[in-house]
Write a protein that binds this DNA or RNA. Sequence first.
RNA 1: UGCCCGAUGGUGUAAUUGGCAACACGUCUGAUUCUGGUUCAGAAGAGUCCAGGUUCGAACCCUGGUCGGGCAGCCA
Length: 564
Amino acid sequence: MEVLGEPRNFIEEHIEKDLREGRNNQRIHTRFPPEPNGYLHIGHAKSIVLNFGIAEKYNGLCNLRFDDTNPVKENEEYIESIKRDINWLGYEWHETPRYAADYFEQLYEWAVKLVKMGKAYVCDLTPEQIAERRGTPTEPGQESPYRNRSVEENLDLLERMRKGEFPDGKKTLRAKIDMASPNMHLRDPMIYRIIHVDHHRTGDKWCIYPMYDFAHGQSDYLEGITHSLCTLEFEVHRPLYDWFLDQLVEGDYRPQQIEFARLNLTYTIMSKRKLQQLVEDGDVDGWDDPRMPTISGLRRRGYTPAAIRNFAQNVGIAKRENLIDVAVLEHKVREDLNIKAPRYMAVLDPLKVVITNYPEGQIEEMDIINNPEDDSMGSRKIPFSREVYIERKDFMEDPPRKFFRLAPGKEVRLKSAYIIKCEEVIKDEEGNITELHCTYDPETKSGADNAGRKVKGTLHWVSVDHAFKAEVRLYDRLFKDEDPGKNKNNFKESLNPESLKIIKNCMMEPALKDMQLENKMQFQRIGYFCVDHKHSTPGQPVFNQTVPLRDSWSKKSNQQKNQK
RNA sequence: UGCCCGAUGGUGUAAUUGGCAACACGUCUGAUUCUGGUUCAGAAGAGUCCAGGUUCGAACCCUGGUCGGGCAGCCA
């Protein structure tokens, strides 16, 4: 997947330097360490592509490790979804998935070791007291009165913590570092806390659980990780990451933490907590709602793994905060789908056209190319008859300049069929256009050489007698604000009420009836779509719009409007 | 009034490590087109946060500012 070449970013440069210097015996071993407390999103995809991509590029390995040190938030459903999403993206982790929980025993032993070294102690302070004594970023903290308990007492207390003799929150194990450190994370950070909650892997075996800082670096160490890549907010944790390992392990091998900026995308949010809130409050149709920035949402929306991978590579890796235009993501799906997606005819807002000089009852099977970008995809037949539907907005009674579509007295080509001319506009009593009467030129059949006749516009259509009705869902951005995450408290205020548009009576060409779940296709002149795997039923597909085609006409006509 | 990061077209990322700022998206022209898609050709748009300094030469090195982000969960 990855092309070996020049380093693409500062992390690869760092790695190549390590390789040159022979660090860690020139092994490269990364890991992707999600906490199973939610579904993966496009930001995780950036990390996945980075970690697995580096392993591939440098002939290394990449582990999947669930960072499951907090049983109150984590569960099996998330684990399954995470594994599914990574595989779907096209990656396979080294050996079996790892779990921080697999290391609980070792971690505990290390905690004991720290106690014996006099570098950890059991603290009886309440959460409030600990917070009070932690100080602030500008003021040093105060030492805990329990800081100088004897090794023996600490050992005894720690063991009793493990045995479950104390209720939640009553005691903690803390590292003895420096309450006056300018780095808050070095002010006697917590190592273990008491949580009497069953763990999805270890059941009721434990009632004390290690904190992230005590678990992550050591887990990296145990797995032989060489480069532990994480996001910027962990930068200040790095001294602690290194401190634990320096106390606990011997030898030259050390994993090293390197931080990069997380991905931000316009008009969406990347916070798992907030995404979960949308799911729980019913603002969306689950974690895989096609408007969600989750991997499963994008998948249901019709995005391809390749598009997401290419996107992740395209945005690059750096340390500065960023906000990527969602147009980049959209460009990447179009790029991929343009090559892969067969084209079909679908009319979203039908207007009937009667071709008055076409023989009644006659049906022609027209040849239509499946994908002009790929000859190997061949062609198929599509029925043509006297009555067809066209898109309502492809007709205007009083068209502006440069309207290349149908209008009274004007001609257009029906894609893969004939050139027709609009002769008459039929309206109901209220003046609504109900149908168009046109004539066709039999000499202009598609494929046949037709005396060089050219018309400016080509429309998609579908035969009235052969069409079937289907539901199509159009999606717009989930939020109205470019950066809804900025609105700290009420991010929901900027939810876009028009992010989902369900269109019931779209007219589809017959071949579309056989589409399978997740099949992707282009609706000619409209956009890329896929078959929704949640709401489709056999013989009655529901189509999700992945992304519309670029549309320079609507852009131009909007500009004209604005100029008036 | 602490510590740690960061700052390059509208957005994002580069710049062979000190040699006259490049690529992608977006925008705008034009050509081609039986998709106003695709493709092709081209254009506009930054002088690199600011001020000093070192140097023949600085986006890159030094000094001092400014601005932005992170850090005070028994979350990760």
